[in-house]
Simulated assay, not measured.
Amino acid sequence: MKIDNSVKTTGTTSSESSGKARAGREAAAPAPAASAGTTVQLSSLSGNLAKIEATIGQTPEVDSARVSEIKQAISEGRFSVDSEKVADGLIESVRQMLAAQPRSA
């Protein structure tokens, strides 16, 4: 089987050409002016979402106290790993990944 490359390039990338096209549209059609009485109302859900995002943004990604506690336990020889719990967690995560994949026909 022979594959023919029928796509011809013009020397510009798609981002360059889309940028030129966008610039042409912007120059040809100016944005409509907003009237003095225009108002926008957002639902309370959007306000709640903004609060949640702010809270998440302030939450540290790493629990430093827990890391220090684990380091201390390791240095004292008190830290032990439950291999069965780790294996069960790995198996469950693989199950979830497989369940999330679309089935191919």
Rank of each mutant, 00 (worst) to 15 (best):
V62Y: 02
A31H: 01
E92C: 02
A28K: 06
S15K: 05
A31I: 04
G77T: 09
V40K: 14
A28C: 01
I74F: 12
V40Y: 14
V86C: 08
P60S: 02
L90E: 13
S75N: 14
A21Y: 03
V86I: 11
I56V: 15
S80C: 08
E92D: 12
A34W: 02
Q72H: 13
T39G: 01
D82N: 14
V67E: 00
Q72V: 13
A36Q: 14
S68I: 09
G37T: 06
K85L: 09
R66E: 11
A33I: 00
K85S: 06
P30R: 01
V62Q: 00
T13D: 01
K85E: 05
V67T: 09
T39M: 03
A31F: 06
E61P: 10
F79A: 13
D63I: 01
E69S: 10
S93K: 13
K71D: 12
E84Y: 07
E92K: 15
E53C: 03
I56K: 07
R22P: 00
E53H: 05
A29R: 10
E26Y: 08
E92Y: 12
G47M: 03
A87I: 13
V67C: 07
A50D: 03
G89H: 07
R66L: 10
A31E: 04
S15E: 13
A54V: 07
Q96N: 10
L42F: 15
A27G: 05
P30Y: 01
Q72G: 09
A31W: 01
Q72A: 15
D63V: 03
R25C: 00
I52Q: 05
L42Q: 07
T39D: 01
K85Y: 03
V81Y: 10
R95G: 02
N48S: 08
A29C: 02
A87K: 09
A65K: 14
A29E: 14
A29V: 06
I91F: 06
P30Q: 04
A27Y: 02
F79R: 11
V81W: 05
S75M: 13
A34Y: 04
E92G: 06
A29Y: 12
S83N: 09
K85H: 09
R78W: 09
S68F: 06
K51N: 10
E76F: 09
A28E: 03
G89A: 14
A87H: 10
T59W: 06
S64G: 05
V67M: 03
T38F: 06
G37C: 00
L45A: 14
E84K: 11
A33S: 04
F79S: 08
L90A: 10
I70S: 04
G57H: 01
V40E: 13
G89I: 04
D82G: 05
V81I: 15
L45P: 02
R25I: 00
K71V: 15
V81P: 08
S15N: 08
E16A: 04
G24C: 07
I91G: 11
A27I: 01
S35W: 04
S44P: 14
V62F: 03
R22A: 06
E61Y: 10
P60F: 01
